[in-house]
Design a protein around this nucleic acid. Structure first.
Lengths: 248, 248
DNA sequence: CGAGAGATTGATACCAATCAAAGGATGTGG
DNA sequence: CCACATCCTTTGATTGGTATCAATCTCTCG
């Protein structure tokens, strides 16, 4: 919020995308703790939690229609969720960053409804939920943690949906940037320096805008002094101004 | 889907809004079963689950900013979730019908992010989650059920969001009608006869359209022979046609 | 019956998609 | 190391869909 906060995206002192979230900011954290505790006890099911698995850029974590297997927490990097349309094009339905949980939307239907692909080299922790449920160990703390995370995602989705539908292009993009900033901040990253790993087309697809419109608005925001943009490095100069744009 | 299915909304033989969902179609069903089972055992915490509480039309189940207390399952009737804007207007963020779960979005933040109001006289079951977690009984089955429901809601939200943003007014409204039909069918009601308890303004607010646009499109759909509309009674004549409108 | 809210229908203005073209960035092979 | 191809991005001109303003109509309820 305050610009005395050290923002170093242009000078590239800190490259956010190569840092890992601390376990305390990670979506799977409560689960990890529970599993750690369990592992100190007796019979530990092997391979239920795979930590810090590398994922190559462009690699798919899972694809639409696949049977549900696991939920994933992002340790570092970023991902996009998308759906293949019948015309072959892909529609982006979400972006995920370090600390986010992915795959929860497949729990109920036991099938992933969308595909998820890495936007850069990343690392994820993988929790095999199916195996876990059958493992016969007490699960209360773990389940409570999962319930909390799901509740969080539901709440976020509520916000995003209602915001997107009602707002015009300018408001949508401003809200998108603000939400990115807040998500970064909640994970201990700088709230004003953000690396936009996704393309303008991806952003447009997510916000329901043409890529040309995204481009136009970004330059407009820059001319207004709201942001600074160098390639994929984004600097929020006036998040207050963006907030005002987003909600009116 | 087939119109040989008896649809009686004009003749008013069956008034959907006054029927209750069977427990097996209700959002809280697995929980009810678990609690029933527990109650047959020893020390049962009193008042954790309040069944079939009546809610008057226009009454608020909970309001934005209130502390999280319980989740609710609708036995009969319908509700709208909305947010008060700073200009005093309300933005609708969702509709809920018999069998739906409400309040899950407050679990993580322990505060309701939106208000929920009855669109007609209704009945709900109320599960005091906070008390339950502290009651010290084995909760695995209950939690598993809640996880499933939340996963379902996340998946649904994903769909709705991405659909709403990208589609034009005609597609949005067609998709909205289809989704209503599917939700009704999944709860054992007729998929073609639906009572629209909410106003055109509410629908417009939810879909991000002006009420005039909603009105225009409904009459257009009627002229195309897709639907039949008498006041608040809606009859889907050609759900295939609506589906085609929605996805292209 | 009258009042007020909700719904419908018409005319106009504006925002954003689309079409079109040029300008950068990145990577590959000669 | 440069030439070329490809992809992403930016900017401009035109078109169409939808909000908005305005008027009338319908229904409900006291």
């Amino acid at each position: 919020m305050n610009s005395d906060h050290s923002c170093c995206i242009i000078g590239a002192t800190c490259n956010v995308s190569h840092e890992e979230v601390d376990c305390s900011a990670c979506g799977l954290d409560p689960m990890c703790l529970v599993l750690d505790y369990a592992e100190r006890g007796s019979g530990v099911p092997e391979g239920i939690l795979l930590r810090r698995q590398p994922v190559a850029m462009g690699e798919n974590l899972y694809r639409a229609q696949q049977a549900f297997e696991a939920v994933y927490a992002i340790k570092s990097g970023s991902f996009k969720a998308y759906i293949e349309e019948q015309d072959g094009k892909e529609r982006v339905v979400g972006f995920y960053f370090a600390g986010d949980l992915m795959g929860a939307e497949a729990i109920a239907g036991q099938t992933y409804p969308c595909s998820v692909r890495a936007l850069e080299p990343s690392r994820v922790c993988m929790l095999h939920l199916g195996q876990l449920v059958n493992s016969g160990r007490p699960l209360e703390a773990l389940q409570a943690a999962l319930i909390n995370m799901l509740g969080k995602e539901v709440a976020l989705n509520h916000q995003v949906t209602s915001a997107l539908v009602r707002q015009n292009a300018e408001q949508r993009l401003a809200a998108f940037l603000i939400s990115l900033s807040e998500r970064m901040q909640s994970r201990g990253f700088s709230p004003c320096g953000i690396e936009l790993r996704m393309s303008r087309s991806d952003i447009g697809s997510y916000l329901g805008l043409a890529r040309e419109t995204v481009s136009r608005l970004l330059t407009k925001f820059q001319h207004c002094g709201l942001i600074l943009l160098r390639k994929k490095q984004l600097l929020l100069l006036d998040s207050q101004g963006l907030r005002q744009l987003a909600f009116l």
